[in-house]
Design a protein around this nucleic acid. Structure first.
Length: 636
RNA sequence: GCCACCUUAGCUCAGUCGGUAGAGCAAUUGAUUCGUAAUCAAUAGGUCGCCGGUUCGAUUCCGGCAGGUGGCUCCA
């Protein structure tokens, strides 16, 4: 029997007997490694520990510490959960159960939905099975054999999955009496599932299609050890403290009311202030980039929505009303007024590009189940603009918007993901226009030099788009900025410009938002800063705090002076101890507290205390006003 | 819209195996005038989300609706 030679990541090589597995290799290196090994990587592909090696292969041993380990652990834990579920609920049919970003899930078809008490039972059973240390073994079957096997077991979803595959053979994994169709790799034994927790139950459509049966999904998470699991659960708790819905109430920024209606935000003074600051910022940033501010009405005649295609493609998301026998639609988008503005004049190529900007409030009938704090609402204001340009100007305009987005996100300190969404099934316009628009966006993305993903079929009904997504405290992605190309609406509204030869040409339209919806952006912003807004955004920048009643006259003078100097300031002259007032200002996350005691009265100064507990030196109120103005300026 | 769960005072939450409810904080009043994260006391505050049903009696059990939470689908 001949020997084989394999290469390790450090460049060294090992001689092994033919047929030797990854585990044998680990054992040949050392007993400790053999014990720690959970999988391997041959030729860059993850494999089971029991996989035989071939001559000349580069091999890597995967232990719990390897970056790849977590996914394997989670995937195997999802199988462990499926096994537990089938023991406890023999009628449950298994479907799919992958590892995901923060854990794993498994979808089951069961007679009765799971309840929270079922999770406990399942978790307990999983612990038993893990303790039993069942060997997890891979088996390769011909496709027809596998279909037969799963059909006999009554696992119709697995049969459907296998039939959809075009491979000759499929792999199965067995642990005890449990068998699952799976590519793997998996842990060598269930005893490696040491730290897991089932987190929630949810309904999920088979294959993600609303028309299919709703399955029961159980989410869970797993880690290499209990400590990491606990650290993760602690992080989740921390994220809950940053939740914008909680902070929105605590900081008195906004509220919702079931008497007003779901998904409709009520902005309290501080929230409205924050919003106003953002809106002022936006106007300034747009004006200096050559945008014109415009405004359109909230409702427009239904005929106009029919002409634009919204009525056919977006009606279910719109609100309609009737006035004097005329049907009107409440605007879900701002583009129509902007097009009417364009049409109000004969346009020359010399006028283009035209960039119409509107902080446009729109209403969309979002389905009840999708509403989520400020991040998904039914009435919201977009920092919306429509750029009308010649086809030649399109690339430059798109690039301009991408750099606009990049500048603004930098000011807030946001990381973001970019995605290109292509033509959906329900859409209008010619293939040719879609291709042109898509390649324009793609080119701009490639030029930006930033990584991006492609979402096939995820575009708007009128054109492809670039989506820019931010993450909330729980790492969920939310679309904020978007750049959408549109050849169709200019066509439908017969927009034209006169070119250099005196001929009428069709302009191209770009729909774009930078922050997206102000509501959503503020939601993400609150979580990003955990409510600790930088001075330029803080709705209240400072609070004047007296030590005792005797300082009130001077403190009032300070308050008046600073408010006059443009500082967003509050006063707390209550008859409470200083510690109490500091604590409240701290909980309100107000950046500066101006403590006024006898010392300050005497020297006509204020002593600013920053919310991190540090103190600035005593200074005159006017000096503090300058200091604040500088701090605001330094942000943008 | 679909699945599961939740809704008790302004907030956070107890509680009643069916006999109309309690705490802490907040609020109000009084005392205290106290220099960097909670001064003390008293008072007030609830159709137990809404509408029906079962019952002698429902906040509690059942149904519907509304609102919310986590997902699915859909989207800024």
């Amino acid at each position: 029997m001949s020997d084989i030679k394999v290469t390790l990541p450090d460049g060294s090589s090992r001689d092994l007997k033919e047929g030797a597995t990854v585990h044998d290799l680990a054992a040949s290196i050392g007993a400790g490694l053999a014990k720690a090994a959970i999988a391997g990587k041959i030729d860059g592909t993850l494999v089971d520990l029991a996989t035989p090696l071939h001559d000349g292969a580069p091999v890597e041993i995967i232990t719990e510490k390897s970056p790849e380990a977590l996914e394997i652990i989670r995937h195997s834990t999802s199988h462990l959960m499926a096994q537990a579920v089938q023991i406890l609920f023999p009628k449950a049919k298994v479907t799919i159960g992958p590892a995901i970003e923060n854990g794993f899930y498994y979808d089951f078809d069961v007679d009765a939905p799971f309840g929270p008490e079922d999770l406990e039972k399942i978790e307990k059973k999983m612990a038993e099975l893990a303790k039993a240390g069942l060997k997890i073994e891979r088996q390769v079957l011909a496709r027809s054999e596998a279909v037969k096997l799963f059909r006999e077991m009554g696992e119709s979803y697995k049969v459907e999955l296998i039939e959809a595959l075009d491979a000759e053979t499929v792999s199965l994994y067995r642990q005890g009496d449990f068998v699952d169709l799976c590519r793997g790799p998996h842990l060598p034994s269930t005893s490696w599932c040491k730290a897991f927790k089932l987190t929630s139950i949810a309904g999920a459509y088979w294959r993600g299609d609303e028309k299919n049966k709703m399955l029961q999904r159980i989410y869970g998470t797993a880690f290499a050890d209990k400590k990491e699991l606990e650290a993760y659960l602690a992080r989740l708790e921390e994220a809950k403290r940053r939740d914008h819905r909680k902070l929105g109430r605590e900081l008195d920024l906004f509220s919702f009311s079931d008497e007003v209606g779901a998904g409709l935000v009520i902005w309290h003074p501080k929230g409205a202030m924050l919003r106003t600051i953002l809106e002022d910022f936006e106007r300034k940033e747009h004006l200096r980039r050559g945008y014109d501010i415009v405004l359109g009405p909230q409702i427009l005649k239904t005929e106009l929505w029919q002409r634009s295609g919204h009525y056919d493609n977006y009606r279910e998301n719109m609100y309609f009303t009737e006035i004097e026998g005329q049907s009107y639609g409440v605007k879900p988008m701002n583009c129509l007024s902007h097009m009417m503005i364009y049409k109000s004049h004969l346009r020359s190529y010399r006028d283009l590009p035209l960039r119409f900007f509107e902080l446009g409030t729109v209403h969309r009938h979002e389905r009840a189940g999708v509403l989520h704090g400020l991040l998904r609402v039914r009435g919201f204001t977009q920092d919306d603009a429509h750029i009308l340009c010649t086809p030649e100007q399109l690339d430059g305009e798109i690039k301009g918007v991408i750099s606009f987005v990049n500048d603004v996100m930098g000011i807030f300190g946001f990381e973001y993901d970019m995605e290109l969404s292509t033509r959906p099934e329900k859409s209008i316009g010619s293939d040719e226009d879609w291709d042109r628009a898509t390649s324009a966006l793609l080119g701009a993305l490639q030029d930006s030099g930033r990584p991006f993903e492609i979402n096939e079929g995820d575009g708007a009904f009128y054109g492809p788009k670039i989506d820019i997504k931010l993450r909330d405290a729980l790492d969920r992605k939310w679309q904020c900025a978007t750049i959408q190309c549109d050849f169709t609406l200019p066509e439908r509204f017969e927009l034209t410009y006169v070119d250099a030869n005196g001929e009428k040409k069709r302009p191209v339209m770009v729909h774009r938002v930078i922050l997206g919806a102000i509501e959503r952006f503020i939601g993400v912003l609150i979580e990003h800063f955990a409510g600790n807004f930088p001075v330029w955004l803080a709705p209240v920048q400072a609070v004047v705090v007296t030590v005792t009643d005797s300082q009130i006259p001077y403190a009032q003078q300070v308050f008046d002076e600073l408010r006059g100097a443009g500082v967003r300031i509050q006063k707390d002259f209550r008859n409470e101890k200083l510690g109490f007032k500091i604590r409240e200002a701290q909980l309100q996350k107000i950046p500066y507290m101006l403590v006024i005691g006898d010392k300050e009265v005497e020297s006509a100064t204020v002593t600013p205390r920053f919310r991190d507990g540090s103190n600035l030196a005593a200074m005159q109120p006017i000096e503090f006003a300058d200091y604040m103005a500088n701090e605001v300026k330094s942000f943008h």
